[in-house]
Amino acid sequence: MTLRWLVRRAGGAVLVLWAVATIVFIAIRLIPGDPAQAILGGPGSQASAAAVEHVRVEYGLNRPLIVQYAVFLGRLATGQLGDSYTFHTSVASLLAVELPVTLTLAVAGLAAAWVLALIAAWWSTQRGRVARAISGGIEITASVAPHFWLGSVLIVLFATGLGWLPAVSDGTAAGWVLPVITVAVPVAGYLAQTIRDGIIDAESTAFAVAARARGESRFGLFARHTLRHGALPGIALSAWAFGSLVSGAVVVEAVFALPGIGRALVTAVEQRDMPLVTGIALVSALAYVVVLAAADLVERAVDPRLRSAT
């Protein structure tokens, strides 16, 4: 790890967070309706004109848009996320309660996706063309399965039909199984295809031929040689996969009644709750940046060539 790498990562993180904050600022204001009315509870609140004007002045909505943007960025730069219009409490306190649920779901889903992908890659590359064809069909189907459909099928099968697992989150470890599988399966499909293709390419290289000539077993060749090369593209995809898991959590948390940021985000967007939308978007982007850096470090550990290239 070099100072140049750290500076580049830190600079990239700042640019990503600035871009996300700017997009949220613009998007919220493009939603039809009056932001002051939204703060007061929406058109159904029947707020008076005086109350609406008071809110405009209090929140700076009467200022030019460029001034509002500058104040918005200034507050974010000092860590002030503000208070939620909808839940009438600080955004930081809401995130402290709900963010761990979503991150747990995403991290556990990524780990489960890698386990499933490695099993599929081993089976498809070691059991012949038939196994490869079957595995390829399963992987494609898994990668395009919508979260809400997959979650519903798992509930019908394992909760309603067999009664093995709870249909919704009940605070126990068993209540996490179906949500984790739901977010993991589509990602596992992509990862398995990528890893399998990398392993197949590695099997035809000179080092693999030499290992087989030395009497290396099939499992030894897979575990010590080809898996490392095949896993590199999958590691590079892990940051994207984590982002996909976080976005999928919005649906999965609703299906399984998990109290994470996904459900809060839906409510915040509907109510034009800009502080909460901004807070959720920023912590999600920050988590993505951290995972991207972690994936880069893992790639460097697996492939020494990357360490010497920077």
Rank of each mutant, 00 (worst) to 15 (best):
T2R: 13
L3I: 15
R4D: 11
R4M: 08
R8L: 12
R9W: 08
A10K: 10
G11F: 06
G11W: 05
G12P: 10
G12K: 10
V14S: 03
W18I: 15
T22D: 06
I23F: 14
I26G: 05
I28N: 06
P32G: 08
G33V: 09
D34V: 02
P35M: 11
A36Q: 08
Q37W: 04
P43I: 12
G44C: 03
A49N: 14
A51T: 09
V52G: 09
H54Y: 09
V57K: 12
L61T: 09
L61E: 05
L65N: 08
V67G: 02
Q68L: 11
F72Y: 15
F72W: 08
G79T: 11
G79P: 06
G79W: 04
L81F: 11
F87H: 15
F87N: 14
L94W: 05
E98T: 15
E98A: 15
L103M: 13
L103Y: 05
L103F: 05
V107A: 10
A108V: 07
G109Y: 07
A113T: 07
W114T: 04
V115Y: 01
L116G: 05
L116M: 15
L118E: 00
A121F: 03
T125V: 04
R127D: 04
A131L: 05
A131T: 02
A131S: 15
I134N: 02
S135F: 04
G136H: 07
A142L: 14
S143I: 04
S143H: 01
P146D: 12
P146V: 09
H147A: 14
G151Y: 02
V153R: 03
V153I: 15
V153D: 02
L154V: 08
I155R: 11
I155Y: 02
V156R: 12
L157F: 13
L162K: 13
L165G: 10
P166T: 02
P166F: 01
P166V: 04
V168F: 08
S169V: 09
S169W: 14
D170A: 06
D170I: 05
D170H: 01
G171I: 04
T172C: 07
V177T: 13
P179V: 10
I181S: 03
T182C: 07
P186K: 04
P186L: 03
V187Y: 00
L191Y: 03
T194E: 01
I195P: 00
D201E: 15
A211T: 11
R214E: 11
G215V: 03
E216D: 13
F219I: 15
L221D: 01
R224N: 12
T226A: 12
L227G: 07
A231N: 04
L232E: 06
P233R: 11
P233S: 07
G234H: 13
G234I: 12
W240L: 15
S247C: 01
S247H: 00
S247I: 08
S247E: 06
V250M: 04
V250W: 03
V251N: 07
A254Y: 08
V255S: 01
L258Q: 14
G260A: 03
I261E: 02
R263W: 03
A264F: 09
A264E: 08
V266C: 08
E270W: 02
P275E: 07
T278F: 03
G279Y: 00
A281M: 00
A281D: 01
A287W: 07
A295K: 03
D296S: 08
V298K: 02
R300C: 12
R300H: 10
V302G: 02
P304K: 09
R305W: 04
L306N: 07
R307L: 12
S308C: 02
